[in-house]
Amino acid sequence: MAETLEKIKKVTPTEFDIHPLLASRWSSRAFDSKALTEEDIHVLLEAGRWAPSSNNLQPWRIVWGLKGTETYDRIFDCLVEFNQGWVDGAPALWLGAIKTDMKKGEKENFHALHDLGLFMGNVVTQAQSMGIAAHQMAGLDFEKAKKEFGFPENYHVATATAFGYYGGDPETLSEDLQEEELKTTRERKSQTEFAFNGNFKKD
Rank of each mutant, 00 (worst) to 15 (best):
S54T: 11
F110G: 06
Y166H: 12
R74I: 07
R61L: 09
G150F: 07
F196G: 05
N122Y: 06
E143L: 04
Y155S: 04
Y166A: 13
K202Y: 07
E6R: 04
V11D: 15
S27P: 07
F142I: 07
K147Q: 15
K183Y: 13
P59E: 03
K144Q: 07
M1R: 06
D73G: 11
W94V: 05
D176L: 15
N55A: 11
A23G: 04
G167M: 03
S190P: 14
P20A: 14
G85T: 08
K34D: 10
H19E: 10
A97D: 00
G131D: 00
G117T: 01
A92S: 00
A134W: 08
K10G: 02
E15S: 10
L21C: 13
E187F: 12
G168H: 06
E175K: 15
E39L: 08
E108Y: 10
S174H: 11
D176H: 15
K10C: 03
S28K: 02
V157F: 05
F82S: 07
N122H: 07
I132C: 06
A35E: 00
H19I: 06
M1F: 10
A127S: 00
G168K: 04
N56Y: 00
F119E: 01
D141C: 02
T172I: 12
K147E: 15
S27I: 04
W94Q: 03
H135L: 00
